[in-house]
Design a protein around this nucleic acid. Structure first.
Lengths: 193, 193
DNA sequence: TTGACAATAGAACGGTCGTTCTATAATCTG
DNA sequence: CAGATTATAGAACGACCGTTCTATTGTCAA
């Protein structure tokens, strides 16, 4: 192993392995990945990567490739456009970990209709909904109205809950009976094309 | 091991291990996870889970817990609100895998300003940008205008590229010189609170 | 060309891996 | 209660794991 070598390329290979296998590679698999004939060479690659802080090990000695599933988070648009090639990145973000706090109570729902259009939630978007959380005023909730489930702002008027659409076309809804809230919207995801 | 046992609870434990360790547990770790004193018990748990299709193994015999990092995707809102406890779920989705096709060329940028508000992209949202892709008409791009980077629709007028905001406040921009496109927006992510 | 050093190969180690086998304990059945 | 059945324990296996050691090859400078 050279003192300096292609760290980016090496990490890329490990990342790809992790992405497709959902586990870190063994040293023998690393050997194969890099085309060596001796496991020892893989050992040195890993050693160098650990020394330079790009890799680490468990208390149990297992390789940990966290941060390798994430995507680079750069600064804001207006703040000037940083070059991702250079190391000006603010952070590395795993979208699942970033958005989902309680995986067991969270699920995705596809949005139909335009009742929340002014809140920037369009038809076809996916909303991340967390169940079992009591909504606060201003939260967007998924609630049952007339046997139908819809997205609405959760508001209060004279102590009673009111469902308000983010669209002038739809009037506020004051539930007559008990209001059934399916969950609170914690995030919106829109994929183009 | 009973013929029927708490599959949901078992999977939850394995899921939690995977989430925190970023690798599948060994049989000894499974034993510990479930409070047994013999690895053999862990072996039977795994066997049952594989038999019932909740777990599988590599060609190399390693445990694969894919789909365990994801979040349940249910039907659409208007289509009625399915109960996630029941097995009516449409799919299980890993957000990273769903949104990011080319991890190396993709990065996140935080949005400032309101130039794309009518496209449902608000200040504070994160946009997933893919570099090195030539924009098609109608794509949202991150482009350089007067030394500043902004989000705009990419349009063509008389064969020449035009940048159009999704906000009547901002007039279309016809670049005088070469248009520098930093990337194409492939997704929008908004997190509440 | 020779010597020094870096990079890779290859063999060998103890440890942990997944798995199987047999033994014991717990539970059920009649 | 007896006997059968099931669940767990515990020991043992070969295979592969990460690691270390030594040998070989390759590269460069003098």
């Amino acid at each position: 192993m050279p003192r300096t070598f292609d760290r980016a390329g090496a990490l890329k290979k490990l990342r790809e392995f992790y992405r497709s296998h959902h586990r870190p590679p063994s040293f023998d698999e690393i050997r194969e990945l890099f085309g060596y004939r001796s496991k020892n060479s893989a050992f040195w690659i890993v050693r160098r990567l650990i020394e330079s802080g790009f890799l680490r090990k468990d208390p149990k000695g297992k390789l940990v490739l966290d941060q390798l599933t994430g995507v680079k988070l750069l600064g804001s648009v207006a703040a000037g456009f940083p070059n991702p090639a250079e190391e000006e990145l603010v952070d590395t973000l795993n979208l699942d970990e970033y958005l989902i706090r309680h995986p067991e109570q969270t699920f995705l729902v596809k949005v139909t209709g335009d009742s929340m259009i002014d809140a920037g939630i369009h038809e076809g978007d996916l909303v991340l909904v967390e169940r079992g959380r009591s909504p606060k005023e201003g939260d967007i909730v998924i609630a049952q109205v007339d046997r139908e489930w819809t997205l609405k702002y959760y508001q209060k008027k004279a102590g009673r809950p009111v469902l308000v659409a983010a669209n002038v076309k739809y009037p506020p809804i004051v539930p007559r009976e008990e209001l059934t809230v399916g969950g609170v919207v914690v995030a919106v995801v829109r994929k183009y094309k």
